[in-house]
Design a protein around this nucleic acid. Structure first.
Lengths: 137, 137
DNA sequence: TATCTAATAGACCCACTAAGTCCATTTGGA
DNA sequence: TCCAAATGGACTTAGTGGGTCTATTAGATA
């Protein structure tokens, strides 16, 4: 179970922003070049994060991207979910909404439990935690 | 994060086998019809399980499928993994094996931790657990 | 007010996977 | 040797992932 490449690029990109001086805005171009990510693709990803309220973008003179919140208030969960979609699905985890078992299906129950175990770890991890032992590039 | 349809069909199919009298072999056709799964597709899925050592198949007169082990010895994890692939990946969870951080990447570490939390729940769940509150169809 | 540069929106593309289908072959007991 | 079902492999079709390209817009400054 790998994350999508977009998640990878995105998380690295956001981490790069987090390591910049506070209140500085950074150009997409810089991030893309340093991290060797196709610029037009990273552009899409950052747009997604912007809509998700994780990044804010600026045009004009003081242009570029920056975090909307301090790193300790951005969780790995929201980063992952904004690209992968919700980890924890409602209803039948198997996608069979016409299942006779419906809500009471023991399979769905266990799968949901497994997913929420994963969810919890991601929720507890902040961008700051990730920065801690991430060497400066 | 939904499972693939193949996993869904497969888990339901195997659960159906588990609920049959011990040592009985059941025809693919029966399973497919009762569970309303395309027969040719379920055939592929059961073949996968057979290769994975979860099911055994018979030809000739006493034909059909059966579990290789008692339900309490078959875990949800192996059912899921035989269709979805390993949940827990080695190396960079982000797929960047050329990452300068390599093994020490804090992102990968947390993602692996999240995945193994999920893994653990699936590992602890046996087919028997699933049977417990699964009403007879 | 015109200009410049980068962010934004959206259309488009290719490769690959998911989800099945179909058919020819094999198996093993009656 | 016949039968019915399991097997293997080729094939299809729809959808997603992973991008690219271009035109438009925003906003500080000259």
């Amino acid at each position: 179970m790998r994350l999508k490449r977009g998640s990878e690029y995105g998380i690295h990109g956001v981490l790069y922003l987090a390591m910049q001086p506070k209140d500085k805005t950074t150009l997409l171009n810089e991030v893309a070049e340093v991290l060797k990510i196709p610029k037009s693709y990273l552009s899409k990803i950052f747009q997604t994060y912007t809509k998700a309220g994780i990044l804010k973008s600026f045009r004009g003179a003081k242009r570029g991207f920056a975090l909307t919140r301090p790193p300790e208030k951005i969780t790995l969960k929201e980063l992952v979910e904004s690209f992968e979609g919700k980890l924890l699905v409602e209803g039948c985890s198997l996608g069979r909404d016409d299942c006779p078992q419906n809500k009471h299906c023991s399979i769905s129950k266990r799968l949901r439990k497994a997913q929420s175990a994963m969810d919890e770890v991601l929720e507890k991890t902040s961008l700051k935690d990730l920065m801690m032992n991430f060497k400066k590039i």
